[in-house]
Design a protein around this nucleic acid. Structure first.
Lengths: 217, 217
DNA sequence: GCCTTGAAATGAACGTCATTTAATAAAAAA
DNA sequence: TTTTTTATTAAATGACGTTCATTTCAAGGC
C-alpha cells in the first residue's frame, strides 16, 4: 500500500475520468460506481475521494468534456456547408449524430438535476452558450433581425432538435432511430425556416446564395 | 405480524402509488425508496414486493398515471379554443404548464431507460400515441395532407415542445422559466405553422376560420 | 547509514439501498 | 377442530457512496 508518486494527482484524475467515461459509454450511467472506476485504474475507492469531492463532481467533469466534444463535432460539421440554411441543417444532423453515437453520455448532460450550490454550473452554462452561438451565427447570416429575436430563434431551434433527440433515441433498432430523427429534424427546421420568411417574422430575409460565414476559431 | 385483510392487495397498491407520487412530487425521484414508501403507508418493505415485482414496476405505474393526467390536462386545454392554430398553441401551453407544475414526475417519464423486456412498454406507447393523436387532429383540421405527413408534423411539433420543456425547466426562478418556455413555444409553433403554408408543404392549407373540431371523448 | 515527516494509498467501517427468503400470524376452508 | 392458504414481517444478502484511522513509502536532515 501507498505506492507513493507512481502517478501524479492530475494523472489519476485523468485516468479516472477516462475509465468512468468508458464505463458510461459501454454500460450506461447506472453502471457507474466509485468502486468500479477505482478498480479500473488500479486503485481503491478512497483514492478517488482524494481527487474528486464526490461522484457528482466526477460526473460534472465528464459532462464538461462531453460538451466540448459535442462542440467540436458541430464545428466540424460546419466545414461541409456554405449557405446558412445548409449549415443549420448540418448543425441539427451533427447534434443528432452525436447523441446517437454517445447516447449514455449525451443523456447524462441533460438529465442531471440542477444543483444550485455548484460553481461548476457557471462553466456549464458557458459551454451551452457556445453551442447556442453557433446557431445564432447562422441565423444572423440568414436574416436582418434584432438581437433579441436571434436569441429566441436560436433557442427555439436548438430546443426543437434536442426534443427530437430525446424522444427518438433508443426506441427502435439503432440506425432506424437515427434516420427517423433526421427526418423529423429536416422537417422541423425546414418548415420553421420557411416560416421565418413570412409576416410573423419581423426582419428581412437576406439573399443567402453564396453567402459564406466565418466560424469562431 | 400478519394483520391479514386490513387492506386488500389493491388497496395497498393504490396507497403505495399515492405515497410514492407524493414523495416524488415533493422531494424528487432520487428521494424515492422502497422503505420510504412502505413506512408512509404503514407497512414494511417486503409488503411492497408482494404487490409490485420491483421498484421499477412501481415507477412505470406512476408514469402511466402521470401520462393519463397529462392527457386530461391537454383535453381540458382544448375546450378553450376553436381554431386549429389556437388549439395547437393551447396544446403547447398545457404541456409546458403541466411540466412546470409537476417537474419531477414529468422528468421521470422521459428519463427512464428503454427497458426491452417490459410489456408495460406497450401500454406506455399507447398512452404516448394518444398524446400525438391530439396534435394530429388539429393538423388534419388545418390542412389537407397525406396521413404520412400528418404523422411527421405532429411528431415534429411535439418534439419541439418537449425540447423546450426539457431545456427550460428548473434553470431560473420558477415562474420566469415558464414564461420563457411559453415564449419559445409560441415562437416555434408560430413560425413552423407559417412554414406549413409555403412550397415546402405538399398539402393545401384549409381556411381555418370557424372550423370547430370534435375531440375524442 | 538511520530517523523523522508528511503525503499517498489503503481497507475497514457506517449507514442506506433494493431485493430475497424463511418464519409466522391470522383468516378461510376442511 | 385441524389444515391450508395467504398476508406480513424480520432478518439476511450484497452493493452502494462516503469517511477515516491506519499504514506504507519517498524524501530530507542527521
Amino acid at each position: 500500500m501507498g505506492r507513493r508518486g507512481e502517478h501524479s494527482k492530475l494523472e489519476i484524475e485523468c485516468m479516472a475520468l477516462e475509465a468512468a467515461e468508458a464505463i458510461i459509454e459501454n454500460e450506461g450511467y447506472d453502471a457507474l460506481s466509485a468502486r468500479k472506476v477505482a478498480s479500473a485504474i488500479g486503485y481503491t475507492v478512497g483514492s478517488l475521494y482524494f481527487v474528486f469531492r464526490n461522484l457528482d463532481e466526477l460526473v460534472q467533469r465528464i459532462n464538461g468534456r462531453t460538451l466540448d466534444q459535442l462542440y467540436a463535432s458541430l464545428i466540424e460539421a460546419l466545414s461541409d456547408c456554405r449557405l446558412p440554411q445548409q449549415c443549420i441543417y448540418a448543425l441539427g444532423s451533427a447534434y443528432l449524430g452525436f447523441s446517437a453515437r454517445h447516447p449514455h453520455r449525451w443523456r447524462m448532460i441533460y438529465e442531471q438535476q440542477p444543483r444550485k450550490d455548484n460553481l461548476t454550473l457557471e462553466i456549464y452554462k458557458e459551454k451551452l452558450d457556445r453551442l447556442y452561438e453557433l446557431m445564432e451565427i447562422q441565423l444572423k447570416a440568414l436574416a436582418d433581425v434584432p438581437e433579441e429575436e436571434i436569441i429566441v430563434s436560436s433557442r427555439a431551434l436548438w430546443c426543437g432538435i434536442q426534443g427530437i433527440a430525446s424522444m427518438t433515441m433508443g426506441r427502435n433498432p439503432d440506425s432506424e432511430d437515427e434516420r427517423w430523427a433526421l427526418k423529423l429534424s429536416r422537417h422541423l427546421i425546414g418548415h420553421y425556416l420557411s416560416g421565418l420568411g413570412t409576416t410573423e417574422f419581423s426582419g428581412v430575409v437576406k439573399q443567402p446564395i453564396g453567402h459564406v460565414i466565418d466560424y469562431p476559431k
